[in-house]
Write a protein that binds this DNA or RNA. Structure first.
Length: 454
DNA sequence: CGATTTTGACCCGCGC
DNA sequence: GCGCGGGTCAAAATCG
């Protein structure tokens, strides 16, 4: 897009900080996206460039959805549609209409390879309180964006080789520091095809490859390949390669991706495992002995360890993550620092916690479904908090409403991340990013709206 | 009748 | 400089 005015995270004013947001917005975001109407594209860019290297964080959500658009709780108005090259399906452009001045926009497009997958890309930050139904999604995307952004800022501040890019365009690449963290919020699936939901962070927009691209995080809720690092996905490779993606650079020695997926191969109710392919992939989740449908379109629930009714998801998750990491270390001789970094990243990064919490919330709480259960305001102030509210075994009701909020977390087989320039996080990067976001943002803030220091 | 969607035109950045 | 492609505008059409 040309309008690059701010790089803020995408949104989110979770109920918790709506008030703050209002203010924050002014400064952090004041630069409302392109002034409605008079778009001064160049002007904004300037602002942007000052603040964020001219890049605006985007969060792309891939989810199976049979409806034209995902119901994320917000009100959107379509303002344009266009057929993008490489994809026969038209891309629709929406603008948030909850508030007239809200700068948030989103692009919706069907995946060319799998029409059942809807790719929704959010950009901008809401400058108004969001309906409860929309907070989950907003939090998730916001947190994801925050991570990405914080990573970016870190990169800028430290010339480490973090974000080396995968893209050919220098401008684009530059910045994302948190590359390739893959979070798989898995839900039950079978061994043959576990398909969790993954968060891919790339430094390049897959939907709009404009050079001026913004770092983009992809939340892949379609779930595809098991421990699959996106690299294992043929589609992924295909796309990335098209954009001069160089895996070798993404997977430097110790690159580690965290993949919280379910694996049925594992006997444990809540299992975790590492898999290494190029890098290490941490998978976490439970398995669903039952289902082994290839296209689990109906597996819309996230069931984390149904056998531990009293353990909070977060606690259990962290414990297991840690344990698994160490276990793997022994088995696979992983470098200690790798483990430490990964663990640290997971446990320390509030952004991740928020993202995970939000995702879980949306699933378990079923909040984001059809428009408006304002009473169901699940305030997640931290994963711990979330954990307290949610118990293992909570099953998500697969709501099939109008939107796709329901199928949001459905699993599926082929996920084709048509991304370009996806990068995987290196442990050190993860740790850095984690610590960074920690210091940068008052942690505890779930929806920490990234105070991206402009 | 107001709000939303449709759709062709226009603007802008980038690569050649 | 030109063409291409992404993104947005805005008038017309449609919907509730």
């Amino acid at each position: 897009m040309d309008h690059t005015s701010s790089t803020e995270p995408l949104t989110n004013n979770t109920s918790a900080d709506n008030s703050l947001d209002e203010e924050k917005k002014e400064d952090v975001m004041g630069e409302t996206w392109p002034p409605p109407k008079t778009l001064k594209r160049s002007g904004e860019d300037e602002i942007d460039s000052h603040h964020n290297n001219g890049k605006r964080a985007r969060v792309s959500v891939r989810a199976r959805c049979d409806t034209p658009t995902m119901n994320d709780g917000c009100q959107w108005r379509k303002y344009g549609q266009k057929v993008a090259k490489g994809n026969p399906c038209p891309r629709a452009y929406y603008r948030c209409t909850v508030a007239s001045s809200c700068p948030v926009r989103k692009q919706v497009q069907r995946c060319a390879d799998d029409m059942s997958i809807l790719i929704t890309t959010y950009e901008g930050t809401h400058n108004h309180p969001l309906p409860a139904a929309a907070t989950a999604m907003a939090s998730t995307t916001s947190a994801a964006a925050s991570m990405l952004i914080s990573g970016s800022s870190s990169t800028s501040s430290r010339p480490v080789g973090l974000g080396q890019s995968s893209t050919s365009t220098p401008a684009t690449t530059t910045s994302v520091g948190l590359h390739g963290l893959t979070y798989n919020l898995a839900n039950g699936m079978t061994s043959s095809q576990p398909r969790p939901h993954q968060f891919y962070i790339h430094n390049n927009s897959q939907i709009s490859p404009s050079p001026n691209t913004h770092p983009t995080i992809t939340l892949d809720l379609t779930a595809s390949n098991p421990f699959t690092s996106p690299f294992a996905n043929p589609h992924f490779n295909r796309f990335t390669s098209s954009s001069s993606y160089d895996p070798s650079r993404l997977f430097p020695l110790k690159s580690t991706s965290l993949n919280f997926a379910s694996m049925d191969s594992n006997p444990t109710p809540t299992s975790m495992s590492w898999a290494t392919n190029h890098g290490s992939v941490l998978s976490y989740g439970n398995q669903y002995p039952q289902s082994n449908n290839r296209n689990n379109h109906n597996l819309g629930s996230l069931t984390l360890a149904s056998r531990q009714p009293h353990e909070s998801i977060y606690q259990s998750f962290m414990q297991k993550t840690s344990a698994a990491l160490h276990h793997q270390q022994q088995q696979q001789h992983l470098l200690p620092d790798t483990i430490a970094a990964a663990t640290k990243a997971i446990t320390a990064d509030p952004s991740f916690q928020t993202a995970l919490a939000a995702a879980l919330t949306s699933i378990i709480g079923g909040g984001a479904s059809g428009g408006g259960n304002n009473n169901e305001k699940v305030q997640v102030s931290s994963m711990e908090n979330l954990g307290q509210k949610m118990k293992w075994g909570d099953q998500v009701s697969t709501q099939r409403g109008s939107g796709c909020a329901s199928s949001f977390l459905n699993t599926s087989s082929a996920s084709n991340a048509q991304s370009s320039g996806m990068m995987f996080l290196q442990p050190s990067s993860a740790a850095t990013a984690a610590s960074k976001s920690k210091s940068t943002s008052p942690s505890e803030n779930n929806n920490h709206q990234d105070h991206n220091t402009n």
